[in-house]
Design a protein around this nucleic acid. Sequence first.
DNA 1: CGATTTAAAGACCAATCGGTCTATATATAA
DNA 2: TTATATATAGACCGATTGGTCTTTAAATCG
Lengths: 182, 182
Amino acid sequence: MERAMGVFWSRGYHATALPDLLRATKLSRGSLYAAFGDKHSLFLRALDRYVTDALTRMDIELGARREPVEGLRTYLAGYVERTSGANGRRGCLLVATAMELAGRDADVDRRIAGFFKAMEAKVADALSRAKAAGTLADGVEPSSAARILVCFVEGLRVVGKTAPTRNASQATVDALLDRFIK
Amino acid sequence: MERAMGVFWSRGYHATALPDLLRATKLSRGSLYAAFGDKHSLFLRALDRYVTDALTRMDIELGARREPVEGLRTYLAGYVERTSGANGRRGCLLVATAMELAGRDADVDRRIAGFFKAMEAKVADALSRAKAAGTLADGVEPSSAARILVCFVEGLRVVGKTAPTRNASQATVDALLDRFIK
DNA sequence: CGATTTAAAGACCAATCGGTCTATATATAA
DNA sequence: TTATATATAGACCGATTGGTCTTTAAATCG
């Protein structure tokens, strides 16, 4: 499964051909269809896995027991890592899928919208806790700031396709965070 | 040409088949190949047109004769328009291309990187003028703020695929701008 | 061991891909 | 008018697409 996810991640949905998936999963044609149905079903499974991984990681990084601002820093540091150099080049399965299939595939639409909503909620929660702790900059409202952060990190993934340096991505993240925390 | 651009824009590179392009351009197969070469060449032309349009629009919106902050507001208002509702659903040819082809197509790579660089430079210039005019918030550095804004607007395009309301997009943009201007 | 289930290999299918080419019709020019 | 250039429609090409099916080999089990 993760193998198949890796192929879709690297190549996108349309550019991934069956032989690519067979090579990656080391399954025969018949076995793959028996196990997953068709290409589209396998793709949805891969996408679900990707979303689950991302949200699980966020729960760890932004965990309620941690200092919220430090959680946000960790969360953003992960994006720095994933959007610079070769990792940046590889891109993001979710963003690529949103751009390639959203609006033309209802199954995908639900997953994309659900992911952004969940992500925004988790960020908003961390920001609320930061506000309660008095570590948020004056005038920052958690819910709108969360929407800003979601847009920002997804934009990082887009710009990351040009493989910026780690330092450049980190500096951008730092400059953004400076506007929102004390 | 714009017709072909529209098809690539709506469907992406791989999902656009020759019959789609023939229908859109109202050209015969032979004429299309005589005029543009192959599919890839036609795509690059469409992408160039898209990039030129976007940068030209930015020059108008952020024009040096205008109040820089007002220029930025106009610029961002354009993104609100393009990333909400049906416009949001349609997406962005440049972002879709970055996610679909960047890293696997050198001709595309150059155009994507060039676009982001040019865009960032234009935003940085407007922010510099705002800073000189004293309308920038304290501690905001034009070049890093420009990188933030570029990421933010590209992220808006990604999230825009879920077709948010105009008001929601506008509120997010307003909240961001509030952190950067006086 | 032999019997049975499971999975691999790959032939095979219709449909479609991007691309070429020929024949026909439509202008344009003399 | 006739001659010529231009663009059309669409047949045609090999390659590849996602998907099915049959044959054979490898496990598993009694």
